[in-house]
Each structure stands twice: as C-alpha cells, then as structure tokens.
Amino acid sequence: MDFASAADRAYANGAFIPGADGFVPKWQAQAAAFRGEARAELGLAYGAGARQGFDLFLPEATPRGLMVFLHGGYWMAFDRGDWSHLAAGAVARGWACAVPSYTLAPEARIADMTGEAAAAVRAAAARVPGPVVVTGHSAGGHLAARMACEGGPEVARVVPISPLADLRPLLETQMAATLRLDSTEAAAESPALLRPRAGVQAHVWVGGQERPAFLWQARVLSEEWACPWTVEAGRHHFEVVDGLTDPESALVRACLDGL
C-alpha cells in the first residue's frame, strides 16, 4: 500500500482492516433498525446550524442519567444517524443516550467542533436529570476527552474510545489541509496537553488490534491524565465500539457503573 507519508500510514485504519468497506453499511442498517424500535426524540436542535442536532433515546422508566455518544470520522465524515444503535446498551441499563451531529471539516475547524459538542451535551443534559457521561470514538473520542477540560460542560465521567489525544502528529498527514489544522490549534485542542477538571472521572478505552498510533494515543492520554485505560483484546478500530450495544459489556460498565 502506498501512502503520502509515514504519518498517513500510521493513521490509516480501513487499509489495515479486512472487509473494511462492509462496516459502514452494516452500521447504518443497525442504526436504522434500532431507531425504528426505540423510544426516541429525533432531530432535537442544540443550535441553528444544519448539523447542530441530536437524537435522544430513552428508557421506559425515568432515566438514571444521560450518556452522550460523539461519533468519529476524523472530524470529516459521518452523521448521528449512522450510530443510533450504540445507544442500546445505555438505554437497556435505564439511561438516556444522546447522539449528536456536529459541523464537519472543512466547513468547521476542530475548535469549532469542540464548542458544538459542548453545546450538544448541555442541551441534552437540560432534558435529562442526573449524572452525565460523555463517550465517543476516534475523533469523537477526542471530543469526549475535551468535554472534561476547562470550559467544557458539567459532566461526571468521560470515556474516550480510541481517542486522538495529541493532534500534533496529524500535522504531517494529508487530512491536516482539510481540517485546516495548524500547530497552534493542534496544541490547544490536544487533550493530552490539557488537564481534566477536578472531579471529572476518565477512563480511556482502545482495541488491542488497533494501529500502533491509536494504542500510543490512548496510552499517552491515560498517562497524562493519570486515569485507567483498557486495551480490549481482539478488537480493531471498527469493532471497538460494539460493546456499547450490550448492557453487560465491560465498555458499558466502564461508562456507567458507580454513577
């Protein structure tokens, strides 16, 4: 496989996952099926932008609290509708789960997306009493971690899944041009270079079969934040979120237990 740079190779996921092309249609089908059966409030606005909306999935009884899932896609792809099924585990545990969209690059920069994620969390939390947990995958893992930092919404816990925690290596990738990422923003938006607010719990999650760069990113965040991290054996980047569909999974327990 040919890559423009070593950094592009390091952060390529699909090129190293057998059958990668089949994952997106599978996720979309699972998400649509879950939306068709779930108790949900769809298309709630948290801002005036076209992508500033969230879907809220609700348990049958009064929610025990709120989990928010922020999707990945290198800040350039996907929509909340692709990930509805990942609310299933939290809802089965009696929690509400909000799944927002946010404005993508190149229309928005990463700092803008951080602000939108915070607005989405605040809007969802205003509708659901109780503790707030924010999780997210890949670029969404970055945004989930940012919610724990200064200026973020009031949250009890963040569980970044395969997060991009130090953005500086991405300056050497081709995607940096689309992201309009520069050294100043890379430093300011890197959770590993920031600190979580006092009282916010954090647990970093990553798949054992992920690209080495993602294992490094997860380890760096856990070390800098002095928080636990879990390497889930046998999971690659496209499988590591699957545990969110299962109320008894270790990932759902890491998100919700003890709150």
Rank of each mutant, 00 (worst) to 15 (best):
C97G: 05
A124V: 12
A125K: 08
P106I: 06
G89M: 08
L66K: 13
A126D: 15
I110T: 04
L86V: 15
P100A: 10
W83Y: 15
H85Q: 14
V134Q: 05
A92Q: 14
G94R: 02
T103N: 04
A120G: 11
A96E: 02
V121I: 14
M76W: 00
A88H: 01
A120S: 12
V128N: 02
P59M: 13
A126N: 13
R122P: 02
T114N: 13
G72Q: 14
D112K: 05
D79R: 13
I110E: 04
Y74P: 02
A92F: 00
V134N: 02
A119Q: 14
P63L: 12
M76R: 15
L86C: 00
S101K: 04
C97A: 15
A120I: 10
E107V: 12
D112T: 14
T114G: 13
G94N: 06
S84Y: 00
I110V: 15
A98R: 04
D112W: 06
M76D: 04
V91P: 01
R80I: 04
Y74W: 13
V134Y: 00
D82L: 06
M67H: 05
G72R: 09
M76I: 15
R127S: 06
W75V: 11
T135M: 06
G130A: 09
P106N: 07
L70E: 08
A77V: 09
A88C: 03
A105H: 02
L70M: 13
F69K: 05
M76C: 15
G65A: 11
P129R: 12
G115P: 07
G81P: 00
G130I: 09
A92P: 03
Y102A: 01
P63W: 04
L104D: 06
M113N: 07
L86F: 14
M67N: 10
V99H: 03
M67A: 14
H85G: 01
A126L: 11
R109H: 07
E107D: 14
T135Y: 07
A61C: 11
R64F: 08
G73Q: 02
W75M: 14
L104T: 09
R122N: 13
Y74E: 04
A111R: 15
A118L: 01
G73W: 00
S84W: 03
A98S: 05
A98E: 06
F78P: 00
P100V: 02
P63I: 11
V91R: 00
G136W: 06
S84I: 10
W95E: 00
A118P: 00
A111L: 14
R80C: 02
A87K: 02
L104G: 08
R127W: 07
A111E: 15
A90T: 09
M67Y: 01
E107Q: 13
E107H: 09
F78Q: 12
A88V: 00
P129W: 09
P59S: 13
D112I: 08
S84D: 14
A120L: 08
A123R: 02
D82G: 04
V99N: 03
G73P: 09
M113A: 11
Y102Q: 02
T62S: 15
L104S: 10
V121N: 06
W95H: 06
R109V: 06
G72M: 10
A87D: 10
T114F: 04
D79A: 13
F69N: 03
V121G: 11
A61V: 11
D82S: 15
R80D: 01
M113R: 04
G130F: 12
P131I: 10
G136H: 07
